[in-house]
Amino acid sequence: MIEIKNLNRYYQVGKERFYAIRDISLSIKKGEFVLFHGVSGSGKTTLLSIIAGVDRPSSGMISVNNELISKLPDQHLSRFRNREIGIIFQHYNLLESLTVYDNVSAPLIPERLSLKEIDKRVKKSLKIANISHKANSIASTLSGGEKQRCAIARALVTDASIIVCDEPTANLDRANIDIFLDILKKLHKLNKTIIVSTHDPIFQKLDYIDQIIHLEDGVLVS
């Protein structure tokens, strides 16, 4: 359950304030599949970042799973990101010199789990993301589609209830897009809340979308 009220995020440019998003209010229920849609520069990534606890709002209220995250100390906000959010970045953002396995295990390190527990969880999410066969490859050697599946596995490994994806299909070819959509569908069935920011029209054709949110110059248009 995500609740957003009058959310603003602005940047101070000289004496002016530039609003990346302005006065956004919305709510997303658990298990929903939500699309953030808009042209480049409309504020999709900004809104997504704030929901993911990666960026902080300039004002307004946001609560995720009953946790007020608009004003949390780093220790708590990080724990929130770790437990509640799985992020799939636009450029995958893998740790290029590590193996797929170690990339996927990275979010579990601060959790102080045993190596055995980590191994169990990593293998499980590698399997869901269909990348088990590449577990021991160095990330930089993977193809674009494999990189993304590795990123998906990493987003799943903490068993977060919310998965956010920033422009997930921007760098993929048709075949890989289909694979990706398959995985998303699987996750949707697992009752995960899924938020995708995109300007790719392919998502709008999907029949299991629950909500489409249009952004224009940082403002919500319905």
């Binding site: 101070q12 902080r56 709002p57 300039s58 004002s59 608009s70 004003k71 100390p73 780093d74």
Partner: peptide
Amino acid sequence: DFHSYTNLQYRIEKLAY
């Protein structure tokens, strides 16, 4: 000023570290 949303406050929280 913990209750402030300014960049300054976020920077300060990092300085505390």
